[in-house]
């Protein structure tokens, strides 16, 4: 599948027009400061990974872009419009898939279009494309309970892509998968991204995943977090794991991240929650 992808031109995002702009974003839950002053710009069709120590508020930042939660300060805008609530311009994929067990694979995938009142026949037609690209052909009538973890995540990705959001937000999308499945999914997601022309923001805790897939890696610091490093991965797509330069980038990101993890651990020891 996707035979025409090998020659995709690169870089296509260095001077891209800004898609997501976060300006001095703050977020606190009660007395806990989760995010303090995150400012960044994510360009159109850029693939950005967010990485950081656990509990640093990286998923919270993603939920703020999605509009699920309201920030305590600052603004986030998508396409120049300030985010106040979720909307079909931003599709989301969660670690735990969050499929609807009462709907078949096909019905899960067409749900977004159904909600947008697209006629059933047309919805199915549009879903077919993503079913094919995510490798779900033949499973249209299966119920989610009968699928493996990897297949479930494919359904979740296809479901988010079928209603054609401009931005795809991925919250640790491979966290619940075994290594073998994960590697397949990473390869497929890279291809999907090239095919789909989406802006992708992916939260992950794996440096390897982040560097392998993204154009840019944002490293979040320990809580209350802000961006401590913004690393551009200047390598053409699709990438393979054994690229030597990829290792160098990994080392670079790991170094920054370890320092932050150390800091967050020592903070936790000093101020136990």
């Amino acid at each position: 599948m996707l035979a025409n992808l090998a020659t995709t031109p690169f870089p296509r995002m260095a001077n891209a027009k800004p898609k997501i702009v976060a300006d001095k974003v703050r977020m606190s839950f009660g007395r806990v400061n989760a995010i303090e002053d995150v400012t960044c710009t994510i360009g159109e069709q850029e693939f950005v990974s967010i990485i950081g120590p656990s509990g640093c508020g990286k998923s919270t930042f993603l939920y703020l872009i999605a509009g699920f939660e309201k920030s305590s300060g600052g603004t986030i805008s998508v396409n120049g419009t300030t985010v106040t609530r979720p909307g079909p311009d931003r599709g989301v994929v969660f670690q735990e898939f969050v499929l609807f067990p009462w709907r078949t694979v096909l019905r899960n995938i067409t749900l977004g279009l159904e909600i947008q009142k697209v006629p059933r026949r047309e919805a199915e037609e549009r879903a077919r494309k993503w079913i094919r690209l995510t490798g779900l052909s033949g499973f249209e009538d299966a119920y989610p309970a009968t699928l493996s973890g990897g297949m479930k995540q494919r359904v979740a990705i296809a479901r988010a892509l079928t209603y054609e959001p401009e931005v795809l937000l991925l919250d640790e999308p491979f966290g619940a998968l075994d290594v073998q499945t994960k590697n397949y999914m990473i390869r497929d997601l890279q291809n999907l991204w090239i095919e789909a022309n989406k802006t992708i923001v992916m939260v992950t805790h794996s440096v390897e995943e982040a560097v392998l897939m993204a154009d840019r890696v944002l490293v979040f610091g320990a809580r209350p977090s802000s961006i401590v490093a913004d690393v551009r991965i200047d390598l053409p797509h699709p990438r393979t794991v054994d690229d030597r330069r990829l290792r160098e980038y990994q080392a670079e990101v790991t170094a920054v991240l370890s320092a932050e993890v150390d800091r967050s651990m020592s903070l936790e020891r000093a101020h136990p929650a």
Binding site: A66, F68, P86, I115
Partner: peptide, 19 residues
């Protein structure tokens, strides 16, 4: 999260309830 999924598809309260 399952409510979030449909809200990001543009669902209103009625959709969330029924679907």
């Amino acid at each position: 999260q399952s409510v979030w999924v449909v809200r990001s598809m543009g669902a209103n309260f009625g959709d969330i309830f029924v679907r």
